[in-house]
C-alpha cells in the first residue's frame, strides 16, 4: 500500500498531506435545465470527518457523487489528493483507488458471499494476490464484526449486516477517503447503531470521511465540521458545537428545529 503522497501520478503527484485531501471549489452541476449545485466549495483535510446535512433535494448526494466521478460537473474543480476530477482525461481508476463509497441501499453483489464481495475488487481491479486479499478481507470482517457471516449471501443478511459488508468491501480497496451517502437511512432503528459505530471507529482511526447523514447526534459526536446545504448551496458551516447550538442562518435554524 503506497502512502497517499506517493500514490498516483501525473496531476496527483504534487499533493502533500498539509493540503486538503479533498478540495471542492465552486462546483456547478446541472441535470438538464435543473441546476442542482450552484457553486459549492469545501475542503477536507486528511483524517477529518465532515458531515453534510440539509433538506431532501438540496444536492447532498449529487455533491458527494461528484467527488468520485459518478456524476460529472459542469464547472469548478474537485481535487482529490491533487488529482483533478473535472478533467476529461481523468484516470478514473486512479481516482477510485483513492475514494471509497458506501451507498444508502448497500448495493452489494447479490450473487457473491460476504467475503467474496469484499475480495472481488482487489482481485479484479487491483490484481492483488488472492491469499493476501483473503487475509485482508478476514481482518475487515473482524473489523466490522461479521465473524461467522463470511459465507452468507447478501440476501441472507440483515440490512445492518449488509451495510457493514459494504463498508468492508469499500475498505478492501484501501481508500484514502470514504464517502457515505445516508448509509443508515434504509435501516431499522436498532441496526442503525451498529453501522454508526463502525463508521465512528473508522473516523477515530483517522480515515478521512465525508458523510451525508440525518443522524444529528452522530454528526455532533463524530464530525469535525458540519456543512448545511440548501438549494445547491452551502448555507452555513462550522464545528459541531457552534453549528448546532449557535446557527446563524434562518434556514439552518428552521431545518434544525424540525429535525432535532
Amino acid at each position: 500500500m503506497a502512502s497517499p503522497s506517493q500514490s498516483g501520478n501525473g496531476s496527483g503527484t504534487n499533493w502533500t498531506p498539509d493540503q486538503p485531501m479533498v478540495s471542492i471549489k465552486d462546483v456547478h452541476k446541472s441535470f438538464g435545465d435543473l441546476e442542482v449545485l450552484k457553486g459549492v466549495s469545501l475542503d477536507v483535510m486528511k483524517g477529518e470527518c465532515i458531515c453534510i446535512i440539509g433538506p431532501s433535494g438540496s444536492g447532498k448526494s449529487t455533491l458527494i457523487r461528484c467527488v468520485n466521478a459518478l456524476n460529472d460537473i459542469q464547472q469548478g474543480s474537485i481535487l482529490v489528493e491533487g488529482l483533478e476530477v473535472n478533467d476529461p482525461n481523468l484516470d478514473k481508476l486512479e481516482l477510485r483507488k483513492k475514494v471509497g463509497m458506501v451507498f444508502q441501499q448497500y448495493n452489494l453483489f447479490p450473487h457473491k458471499t460476504a467475503i467474496e464481495n469484499i475480495m472481488m475488487a482487489p482481485i479484479t481491479v487491483l490484481k492483488q494476490d488472492k491469499d493476501e486479499v483473503a487475509e485482508h478481507a478476514n481482518s475487515l470482517i473482524k473489523k466490522v464484526r461479521l465473524e461467522g457471516k463470511e459465507n452468507s449471501y447478501p440476501g441472507e443478511l440483515s440490512g445492518g449486516q449488509q451495510q457493514r459488508v459494504a463498508i468492508a468491501r469499500s475498505l478492501a480497496m484501501s481508500p484514502d477517503v470514504m464517502l457515505f451517502d445516508e448509509v443508515t437511512a434504509a435501516l431499522d432503528p436498532e441496526t442503525v447503531k451498529e453501522v454508526l459505530n463502525t463508521i465512528q471507529e473508522l473516523a477515530e482511526e483517522g480515515m478521512t470521511c465525508i458523510l451525508v447523514t440525518h443522524e444529528m447526534g452522530f454528526a455532533r459526536e463524530v464530525a469535525n465540521h458540519i456543512y448545511f446545504t440548501d438549494f445547491g448551496l452551502i448555507v452555513e458551516h462550522g464545528a459541531p458545537a457552534t453549528f448546532f447550538d449557535d446557527a446563524k442562518d434562518p434556514r439552518t435554524k428552521e431545518f434544525l428545529s424540525q429535525i432535532l
Binding site: 468520485n68 459518478l70 478514473k92 481508476l93 477510485r96 483507488k97 475514494v99 471509497g100 463509497m101 451507498f103 448495493n107 452489494l108 453483489f109 472481488m120 475488487a121 479484479t124 481491479v125 487491483l126 459494504a166 468491501r169 469499500s170 480497496m173
Partner: peptide, 9 residues
Amino acid sequence: EAASALGYT
C-alpha cells in the same frame, strides 16, 4: 454503480 465506484471498468 457500486462496481464502478470500486474501480471496475
